[in-house]
Amino acid sequence: MKSLVAEFYKGIFKENPILVLALGLCPTLAVSTSLQNALGMGLSATFVLICSNILISMFKRFIPSRVRIPSYIVIIATFVTIVELVMEAYLPSLYKQLGIFVPLIVVNCIILGRAEAFASKNGVFASFLDGLGMGIGFTFTLSIIGLIREVLGAGKIWGYPVSLDFVPVLVFALPPGALLVLGLMLAIKQAGDKR
């Protein structure tokens, strides 16, 4: 039981996909312009991650190892298509904001990485917890970057102005700001590692 809890926790801190494993960087940089976008992307990716982890761990016996990667990709792409269609129908403005990064969840290395490294070797429930933990770790880190960039770059939190006379530092809303914030976060993380 204790190991199952560990499977869940490791994704949030010890093996945080963005800060420790440096995976899923493209969406992290591209959609972290605001907290809303970050949360939308994080939750979508988490959904796909959990579903694909469960399905792959269920079918791991039946998938021949030679065609495993294409099979995983098909499974992942199926769930991504579901997310795409649902988001386009019910959250059209978010769908527009995230743009091509919704279909690109397919190639988010976190998802394929977990399929290959974890779900293909572990049981259904452990894979579910692994997916949930990794998903939360991803969503949490992404949201923090989104929050920082939204506050500094637009002077808003969740779309509401922080203060009337706050002058936004526009660069944080632009691509260089994304690279900068992530670079500094990684540096802070590296400074915190054991000396």
Partner: peptide, 8 residues
């Protein structure tokens, strides 16, 4: 360049 991007 930082100022140009931040406060155009």
């Amino acid at each position: 360049a930082f100022l140009m991007a931040s406060f155009p």
